[in-house]
């Protein structure tokens, strides 16, 4: 038995081992190319929400409540209110929810995502200080548990007043109730919660 641990064989083995390790590291480092990552455009973004109320008797009497959030839920949003309701008139509401982050490829979130999954979504409306009433139309899209989703609605403007109008979109609610037409829900998470302040009926 020759006990000489510093012999050349062992040194060679050790050097080989270290060399192998370095090579392995280098190979993996070098294979990592310098290509830039591609940008991600958020797919579930809602950048533009608009509620367009058109007087059933006068197509020129239009009220638009619009919310613009260029970064969707990731950034600040602004409300724009155009026009005012006419006392006593009846309006049909047209909803629009868009993802316009990519101006060349605007996505229609309402028609492409929400309506195909109507049984998992629910629109809830609320007003305060303004004499507006709502009816979910008979041709409204069916929402969870046979409810009306709240996409096709008719609004009646009462006595002149000024107040707030709120729209909420609830995703995967536990229960929904549209018996008072404005609607209410429990559970789920809010994908949209916008309040337009200072809406007028003249």
């Amino acid at each position: 038995m020759n006990i000489n641990y510093l012999n050349s064989n062992i040194m060679k083995t050790s050097k080989l081992f270290i060399a192998t390790l370095f090579c392995l590291t280098l190979i993996t480092s070098c294979s990592d190319d310098d290509d830039n990552p591609i940008p991600v455009l958020e797919e579930e973004l809602i950048t533009n929400v608009s509620l367009t109320f058109v007087n059933d008797a006068d197509a020129n009497d239009v009220v638009v409540l619009a919310n613009v959030a260029p970064d969707g839920q990731e950034g600040a949003s602004n409300n724009i209110i155009n026009g005012s309701f006419t006392s006593g008139a009846t309006y049909s509401l047209t909803l629009s929810l868009l993802n316009a982050e990519d101006a060349d490829d605007v996505e229609d979130v309402l028609n492409d995502d929400i309506i195909p999954e109507a049984d998992e979504h629910f629109f809830v409306y609320a007003v305060n200080g303004i004499n507006l009433t709502v009816t979910r139309d008979s041709d409204d899209i069916e929402g969870p548990n046979g409810s009306n989703l709240g996409v096709n609605t008719t609004w009646v403007a009462g006595a002149a007043s000024t107040g707030n109008v709120q729209i909420r979109l609830v995703h995967e609610p536990e229960s929904v109730d549209d018996s008072d037409e404005f609607g209410s829900s429990t559970g789920g998470s809010e994908d949209v919660n916008i309040t337009f302040q200072g809406v007028e009926i003249q």
Binding site: S29, P37, I38, V40, E43, E44
Partner: peptide, 23 residues
């Protein structure tokens, strides 16, 4: 000790990267 680390955030998520690609 020497260490090399490579983080890859897959863009196919359709959600903006929480943590970026980095070495």
């Amino acid at each position: 000790i020497g260490r090399f680390q490579d983080n890859f955030a897959n863009p196919d998520t359709g959600v903006r990267r929480l943590i970026p690609d980095y070495n």
